[in-house]
Design a protein around this nucleic acid. Structure first.
Length: 508
RNA sequence: GGCGCCGUACCCAAGUGGCUAAGGGAGCAGUCUGCAAAACUGCGAUUCAGCGGUUCAAGUCCGCUCGGCGCCUCCA
């Protein structure tokens, strides 16, 4: 599989697409910054997770052995504050929202990372690195804190493309009397009384945010990792600091390719906790199927911003329906008229399937261009539909072998994108939807009744039943050569999306 | 103030110097159908925010203008 197109990835550090070559042939070490578990995640977190899930799947699809590590930040100010507010321990808060995260990701079909390290599980590793940095003169203790000496790391600012002078010129650098330099950042933070604390050479405290990722990435993936990802907002200072402390520690290059996903916007602004303009994943999943959400989030290139809107979600729903209708058509064509493979005249369609696979692969290889890849998928759907219609009109049948090949190709693509996990028939009939299978018996009874009416050429009654099915069950009928099938009306969510106040915050 | 990103049809969205500017959604018309639905076919940007420049050739490179956004503070 790896003789295909070389994978090119945009590296935030160099600002260019680079041909991807892992440090160890055939193996990829991938670290993606996870979430701080102090609240439910919003759709922006879902975007990041889904983007890297697709990147991972693309690499796996190419035959790479991917080691995917994603941390949980389970100790930080926000967790402590939340715990205090709710009269719980930090551990309880972290555990609760870690499981909330898992629940969301499982529903979204995001594959679990190979390792999900916890910050609190790597305190000794962090202390080791911090001690070494002090010894090297790259860090210093001040009070109970330990700070990284930024001016000891000459290439600081390389990732975020800014110079030390520029950063100082910015008005928002926090000045502190304990810092030698305003840009120095905390590696270890002394705990205040009553706060969670771990013993350290500098007194009881807890890790600074940035050091945990360096410690966990290096522990689980080695001192140089192939791909390090995260949201674009982590680029500075988080990733810049990770580079500084890691490279000051090892003397080696920390990351080969930095990958940053763009934001999910709402009303043109970044969806974020602090702005309060967010929808949690749970809220969105209450109205849209996880695959619809995935398709929506993968319909834009991962580095570009996406505007969240109900209209877009509904469009994605319609688009996904189209693909499921196609998969259903393949299945029914196979059932209705199985025909062996091997008869001539199908070269054209086989070429198209192969062409699709090449195009899909090429798109994903070019910096994970999911929108382009989806375009190739829709082209295949149209071409296959056209072919099936044309064969049928000429009284011919497409062989089951060709149908299988088409389906396999679509499913392979679906596996990379995390789509088509449902049975097409079940998807179209709306199983798993809000009203689940409750309506099924009644719908099927009415469909049977209508079929009888049609047989008796009582079209008035047949049309009346059709109307009732649509109005009371939102069910649309398809009279096909193999009988009548039904599916729920192709509409998106069943709620009013933008009605919630944008300034409202779920967590304050 | 510094650094950076974006502006493609009604909506979403590919495209990064060169055939007729992908694809999806919505719309209209046709084929098919008892009627529908789906599917298929056709229509839909002489044009890529605006202006100027480079080039044989620009949505694609450069400059300016207008508009929107991000990072510089916790943030996917």
């Amino acid at each position: 599989m790896s003789e295909a197109h070389p994978i090119r990835i945009f590296n935030s550090l160099t600002g260019r697409k680079e041909t991807f070559v892992p440090l160890v042939p055939g193996r990829v070490g991938m670290y993606v910054c996870g979430v701080t578990v102090y609240d439910h995640c919003h759709l922006g977190h879902a975007r990041s997770a889904i983007v890297f899930d697709a990147i991972r799947a693309t690499l796996v699809n190419r035959g790479y052995e991917v080691h995917y590590v994603q941390n949980f930040t389970d100790i930080d100010d926000k967790i402590i504050r939340r715990a205090r507010e709710e009269g719980k321990t930090s551990e309880e808060i972290a555990a609760a929202y870690t499981s909330s995260y898992h629940e969301d990701m499982d529903r979204l079909g995001v594959k679990r990372p190979d390792v999900e390290p916890l910050a609190t599980g790597h305190i000794p590793e962090m202390i080791l690195i911090i001690s070494a940095l002090i010894e090297k003169g790259a860090a210093y203790a001040a009070g109970g804190d330990v700070l990284f000496r930024v001016k000891k790391f000459p290439s600081y600012g390389a990732l975020s493309k800014r110079s030390l002078d520029e950063m100082l010129a910015g008005a928002r650098v926090e000045v502190s009397e304990i810092k030698e330099d305003p840009l120095d950042f905390v590696l270890w933070k002394a705990s205040k009384p009553g706060e969670p604390a771990w013993p350290s050479p500098w007194g009881p405290g807890r890790p600074g945010w940035h050091i945990e990722c360096s410690a966990m990435a290096m522990k689980h993936l080695g001192q140089t990792i192939d791909i390090h990802g995260g949201g674009h907002d982590l680029l500075f200072p988080h990733h810049e600091n990770e580079i500084a402390q890691s490279e000051a520690y090892t003397g080696r290059s920390f990351v080969r390719i930095w990958v940053h996903n763009g934001f999910l916007n709402i009303n043109r602004e970044k969806m974020s906790k602090s702005l309060g303009n967010f929808f949690t994943i749970k809220e969105v999943l209450a109205r849209f199927d996880p695959e619809v959400v995935r398709l929506f989030l993968l319909s834009t290139h991962y580095r570009h911003p996406i505007e969240f809107s109900d209209q877009s979600l509904r469009d994605s729903r319609s688009a996904l329906d189209r693909m499921y209708r196609f998969l259903d058509l393949l299945a029914r064509s196979r059932e209705e008229a199985p025909r062996p493979f091997g008869v001539g005249g199908e070269k054209d369609i086989l070429d198209r399937i192969r062409d699709f696979e090449g195009r899909f692969d090429e798109a994903m290889s070019d910096d994970f261009n999911t929108p382009l890849a989806l375009g190739s998928l829709f082209d295949l759907v149209r071409e296959m539909n056209r072919h099936l219609v044309s064969e049928r009109s000429q009284g011919r049948r497409v062989s089951t072998g060709s149908l299988d090949l088409a389906e396999d190709a679509v499913r392979r693509a679906g596996k990379v994108l995390g789509l088509f996990r449902h049975d097409p028939r079940a998807w179209l009939e709306g199983a798993g939807g809000p009203d689940g299978d409750e309506r099924r018996p009644e719908v099927e009874r009415l469909v049977a009744e209508r079929t009888a009416a049609r047989k008796a050429r009582d079209f008035a009654l047949a049309d009346e039943i059709r109307r009732r099915l649509e109005e009371t069950y939102a069910v649309v009928l398809d009279d096909g050569p193999g009988g009548t099938t039904w599916r729920r009306k192709a509409e998106g969510g069943n709620g009013e999306p933008g009605t919630r106040g944008m300034g409202e915050s779920a967590n304050g």
